[in-house]
Every structure is written in structure tokens, then in C-alpha cells.
Amino acid sequence: MNLVESLERQLEPNPNIPALRPGDTVKVHVRIVEGTRERVQVFQGTIIRLRKGGVNANFTVRRIAAHGIGVERTFLLHSPRIEKVEIVRRAKVRRAQLYFLRERRGKAARLKELRK
């Protein structure tokens, strides 16, 4: 094992993030610092990708904001700024990156719920 990897491995991922999968609809509670004040903002959307890579491991959440405009936000799995992540719904998906959702609008952009 090289030294950089061993150094990265010491750094623990944020314990408040459960195991995530692409297609999950999640509520991400993010701590936001405004000057001296701190508040928590919730970002709800679908996970369209998970990326590995040690401390840089991250996931991207896509949500449709006002006027049907898509907004994507990427969060680091190691970031202490994430208060918690709630899984709202899990969907059946057949690929790891759900980029096809970007081209779809409205009803076409739905995903089938995962049955256990």
C-alpha cells in the first residue's frame, strides 16, 4: 500500500451517511455557515451517481427546482458539513450513472420503486 493511500484510509467517512445507491431519493441535511451563524438546509433529490476515490468519494443529488429547472449538487462522503442523510425512497435502476434523467422532464423522469 502506498503512503498516500494509507494516510487517506485513516480519515473516517462521515458516520451520519448511510449506505447509498444510485436512484435513491434522499434528504441531505447540510450545515451552512453564514458569517457567524450556522443553519441546516435540506436538499432533497435523486442520487444520480456515486463516486469512489478515498477522501474524495462523493455523490451527486439531482432535484427539480422551481420552473422545472434541474439542480445538481455534489456532496463529499467525508464532509463533516453533512448533518445527516435520510433515504426517502429507493428505486430500481439498471445503471450506475443515471445521466439519462437529465434529458427527461416531468413524468418521463420517474423511477420505479424498488420492491423487496
Partner: peptide
């Protein structure tokens, strides 16, 4: 050794 990144306590 190489480059990487470190996340501080404030994120």
C-alpha cells in the same frame, strides 16, 4: 510522496 486532500473539521 504524492498529492491528496484533507478535509478540515469545518468541512
Amino acid at each position: 510522496v504524492g498529492m491528496t486532500q484533507v478535509i478540515k473539521d469545518n468541512g
